[in-house]
Structure formats: structure tokens, C-alpha cells
Design a protein around this nucleic acid. Structure first.
Length: 269
DNA sequence: CTCGGAGCCTGTCTGC
DNA sequence: TGCAGACAGGCTCCGA
């Protein structure tokens, strides 16, 4: 489910709601979630809310130093902010974090989502580079790609190189870059590398502007759907005409995952 | 080191 | 209508 634009949307919404609030109670409703929430956590204060790759991270100031409480939504997780004491939907509810002014509700149908607690930002951060950071340049992309024989689609999903891209944007980005998802990344020319770099940044930024993509389950922290699904150009559109040239969009499987592309705009080889 | 496949879960949808 | 099988936005682990 949530990739970088969706998680960024949630983080931007939660930041003003949670900043400065005291955590009063943590309730875990799923045996799969095991969180070493010690005494010092109760009464801790939210310092900042940040996106770390596809994770939502709360930095908490406790009596025993700062901690990072980190949510990963995986396929079907959502984090919903519920103000005051409104009644709460119970279906698929996996955890409740109660704050002074409301509750942070963690829902997760397929139960792949995780909550972890760490002692430092480094400890909980993914290894890959943030594609919307100033350090992400065409040159840097080139060095990340160097030596990899993986095909473009699979490479874009690697969180140890570049964080935040999931299966939807791993189809949309190659389309925008006019590159075949089957291209081995070490075969890209300098110009193609620039096109790819531009596509990664522009697709992610445009999606954030539209509060992310809701293909089926994704909801933002207010329970609303995203808006970018109206702007998807290839993902989920197999059998329909390419918005650029009219050729029928094709679906294939790369690395066990659905992949969509226009055979005319994104010619192989 | 790299890469591809199985597995983790629960639900919806399609075709027989 | 019933049922089996495919498929779903992510990631880890294992073996080649």
C-alpha cells in the first residue's frame, strides 16, 4: 500500500496534531505486535513526526532520553487520528495510542504492518537514499545503479538503494521516463539516467500534491482517499489506451509483481 | 556480493 | 450459489 507520497501525506497531517502532545497509553490488540513499551514511555512527549522512507516515526522525549516509535504500514496498514472521545471503528484495529487530545489508531487488514521502538534515528532509518533530498542527483543515481544488472522495475523497488518507491510508482516512473521496465539498469545512458532521475522526482512530488494514490485500501490520517489514482497513466490500466500514444497498455510480471507499461512509449532494449 | 523465489496474512474478485 | 484459484500497494529470509 503506502509508498513515499502516501506516507508523506500522513506525516504532514499528523505533525501538527501530535507535536508537543503527551503519550498517555499504548494498547496492542494483535499478538503479532510486540513492543517493549516501558514505564518511561508513558508521559513521554512527541518532539517531531518524520517520514523515514516508508515509515512514520515519532520522536518521543522520555524521562530516560529520546526514543523513536516507528510505524511501517506495509500493504494494508493505516494510521488514523481520532480527536476527543469519538467512538472508534474496531474492525482490523491493531493498536491504540492515546494522547491528551485524541487517539492514534493503527489499522491493518493483512497484519504485515509493524511497530518498533528504537534508541536513535540511525537505528530505525532505512539504508537507502531519500529521493526527495538534496543529495539525490543524477550523478548520485548513477553511482547507486553502477554494477547492477537488475532490470529497472526491480531496481526501483530496492529500499537499500533508494527509499520510498513501491509497486505503483515502480510502473509510473519508467513510463514518465519513457524507459522499458525490463531495461537492465547498467545499460542506461547518461541521458537516460537524467530522464530517470527527473521522473523519480516529478512523479513522487506530483503524487504528494494530490495526497497520494488510493488503489484499494490506502487512506490518509483523516480516513480520506488520495487523489493521484486519477492521474495514474499505466498502473492498473492494462487493456486501456496509453494516455500519450493510444497503444494498449500491457501488464506483465517482473519479480513476482504486476508491472504495467506502454510497449510503444517504452520500447524494450 | 547479487539475484530470484517462497512465505507471511486476510480479503476480494473471477471463472467454472 | 459454491468453490477453487488468482491476486493485492511490502519486506525478509534462504539458497543458487
Amino acid at each position: 500500500m503506502p509508498e513515499l507520497p502516501e506516507v508523506e501525506t500522513i506525516v504532514r497531517q499528523l505533525r501538527p496534531k501530535l507535536a508537543g502532545q503527551r503519550l498517555l497509553l499504548v494498547e496492542l490488540l494483535d499478538d503479532k505486535l510486540s513492543l517493549p513499551v516501558g514505564e518511561e514511555m508513558v508521559g513521554s512527549t512527541v518532539v517531531v513526526v518524520e517520514r523515514l522512507g516508508k515509515q512514520i516515526a515519532l520522536n518521543l522525549r522520555t524521562t530516560d532520553g529520546n526514543r523513536w516509535l516507528v510505524f511501517h504500514l506495509r500493504m494494508t496498514g493505516s494510521l488514523i487520528w481520532s480527536a476527543g472521545n469519538k467512538p472508534v471503528e474496531q474492525k482490523h484495529l491493531r493498536a491504540i495510542l492515546s494522547f491528551e487530545k485524541g487517539k492514534l489508531l493503527f489499522y491493518d487488514l493483512r497484519r504485515f504492518g509493524t511497530i518498533i521502538l528504537g534508541n536513535s534515528r540511525d537505528e530505525v532509518s532505512p539504508k537507502g537514499l531519500e529521493p526527495l533530498s538534496s543529495g539525490f542527483t543524477p550523478e548520485r543515481l548513477g553511482s547507486l545503479i553502477a554494477n547492477s544488472r537488475q532490470v529497472l522495475k526491480s531496481w526501483l523497488l530496492r529500499q537499500d538503494r533508494l527509499v520510498g518507491i513501491g509497486n505503483i510508482y515502480a510502473s509510473e516512473i519508467p513510463f514518465t521516463a519513457r524507459l522499458s521496465p525490463h531495461r537492465p539498469v547498467n545499460s542506461l545512458s547518461i541521458n537516460e539516467l537524467r530522464q530517470l532521475h527527473r521522473a523519480i522526482v516529478s512523479v513522487l512530488e506530483l503524487s504528494i500534491e494530490h495526497r497520494g494514490t488510493t488503489f484499494s485500501d490506502y487512506r490518509d490520517s483523516t480516513g480520506k482517499k488520495g487523489g493521484f489514482q486519477k492521474l495514474l497513466r499505466v498502473y492498473g490500466r492494462d487493456g486501456k489506451p496509453c494516455p500519450s500514444c493510444g497503444t494498449i497498455i500491457q501488464r506483465t510480471v517482473i519479480g513476482q509483481r504486476s508491472t504495467y507499461f506502454c510497449p510503444t512509449c517504452q520500447p524494450a532494449g
